[in-house]
Design a protein around this nucleic acid. Sequence first.
DNA 1: CTGAAAGCGCTTACAG
DNA 2: CTGAAAGCGCTTACAG
Lengths: 342, 342
Amino acid sequence: MNDAPRRPRRSSGRTTLADVARAAGVSPITVSRALRQERGVDPVLADKVRQAADQLGYVPDAAARALASQRSTQVLVLVPMLSNTLFVDVLEAVHRTLFPAGYQPLIGVTHYDTAEEELLLRTYLPHRPAGLLVTGFDRSETARQLIAHSGIPCVHLMETSTAPGVHCVGFSQVDAGAAITQHLLDRGRRRIAFCAAQLDPRTLQRAEGYRRCLRAAGLYDPHRELLSPERSSISLGARLFEEMVQRMPDIDAIFFCNDDIAQGGLLAANRMQVPVPQRIAVAGFNDLAGSDQMVPPLTTVRTPRAEVGQAGAAMLLALMRGTPVPQSCIQLNYELVVRASS
Amino acid sequence: MNDAPRRPRRSSGRTTLADVARAAGVSPITVSRALRQERGVDPVLADKVRQAADQLGYVPDAAARALASQRSTQVLVLVPMLSNTLFVDVLEAVHRTLFPAGYQPLIGVTHYDTAEEELLLRTYLPHRPAGLLVTGFDRSETARQLIAHSGIPCVHLMETSTAPGVHCVGFSQVDAGAAITQHLLDRGRRRIAFCAAQLDPRTLQRAEGYRRCLRAAGLYDPHRELLSPERSSISLGARLFEEMVQRMPDIDAIFFCNDDIAQGGLLAANRMQVPVPQRIAVAGFNDLAGSDQMVPPLTTVRTPRAEVGQAGAAMLLALMRGTPVPQSCIQLNYELVVRASS
DNA sequence: CTGAAAGCGCTTACAG
DNA sequence: CTGAAAGCGCTTACAG
């Protein structure tokens, strides 16, 4: 008798679709259809299936589903850093847009490092995410190719580009940097310094805006720039303020490339008894949490990061679904927020 | 002639293991072994395989791999909120520990909402993560069961418990809350207020520590507690400070449950010209970025969040590998950081 | 509306 | 050290 039921050679022991089918007295395919709410299943049967599934504690296997259907519901989202709360706001908006639509963001943090971004892509691309959301355009050639060859729809966030075939949602970092500098000029400031940290591409674009504006006014002086490659932070901002004031005591304003270092600058001014804005006006960038609470409240640029996240995710949704995308590059608006520090 | 090569009924068109095998002139299984660096493959063959894979731009399919091997390399990490930078530090440490070990964190944000946590579990458990890292013990019964029935190893972060079978890494929020309160007592403060936001379990545990300490000293007065369910933020801290000072003008110290509201309190004090610490001493919790830069610098409790993330991930690693875990519950130390605000 | 067969792209388990 | 077969747990594509 060799028709004895031989045990399967590999078994996970888990409850499968087949188990549910047996319990509900239907075929596996009907279970699959009922559980996925596919229309065209007898409601009575569907109910019986759901009940059986519940009772057995059935949890569908996402890997099997992805393999069979050739589609995943994960979206890889690459951001530089979570300690820059800017990106937390972007991620929140991305999640709010993608999750209800049936996609799950898979967050990867590059630490502003192109090699790390490449490693993340190598690690996550095998999961065949349904879509890609990346920050800016600055990446290794290999990373670029990995993305292109994957054939996965990709939207770039935070910056804009008019290159053909590129999808992006952002705003002009250069213009925004120029606008806040112009505001300081309009307030009568003439010796405006620039303090920056991290020196990522967007920071450098703001620097460009700063220079463009001051050059146009014939007031640009490179000695008034203090650029630190260190990670942006409140305490670094304090140090930059001290150094700037010591080195160039005649400056009458400082534009900090990000609100966290601006807040640090304001606190240092307070400690050093440097009157703000009387002696030195201070402006930041991004309007982060707490900037409105500083003493004096910080003048800054409100950047549309939630909107970037929302619109970027919505654009990706359209690309993933094959719906037409009205605009492949969306340029959003920033807003000057003038408070007492300038 | 019915032996014409009939096209497969479903084809993804992607480069597969079989394509690489054909190109390298070996069997698929050898490609699989070579690419996974399994030992016992002729180095010459392995090299040929890798070359062929590179040339074809082969990207292995994680879903197929997961299905065949019945194992995934993702670890689901559930945290309450990314805007609380505390958890960003936890996540960083988790990533630094898991990623080099071959596991990828899959971040889920619960927004301090047990229903949302349940939804996240329902959504991500089908991916059969290799491990689970969750925050604290406060969750719905359903969530608890989903975790238990999944059979997936799980480590709880931020709090400790002596319940059998529970794995956790944290510190005593109650003791830490009591310790900072005791510090204020030691400084001679007698009418110590408590301001809190969010009111999540850990915040309430700190409140318990505050009460325990003051009751022991015979100085507890419930009117000096200001508990807001609103999300913790610098601006909320400013409002809480103002309200507290107005309502209970005789207080001589405030313990804020988190540094962000403490920073807001300090800024409000500055604005209101309330001398700190002369009239009111201020203490926070967590030693977040910027607390050391406040004017005056903020007294607080440095909590071991990076250590929690690191040790929690290390414990999970052991559980996933089936290695013995020396201690199922690790209690870490916090540290009083006394600065000029108290 | 329901189902039997085939297949998604890998790895396991067994041989040699 | 290498490979042919079977199987992981689903869904697609085709019938009825």
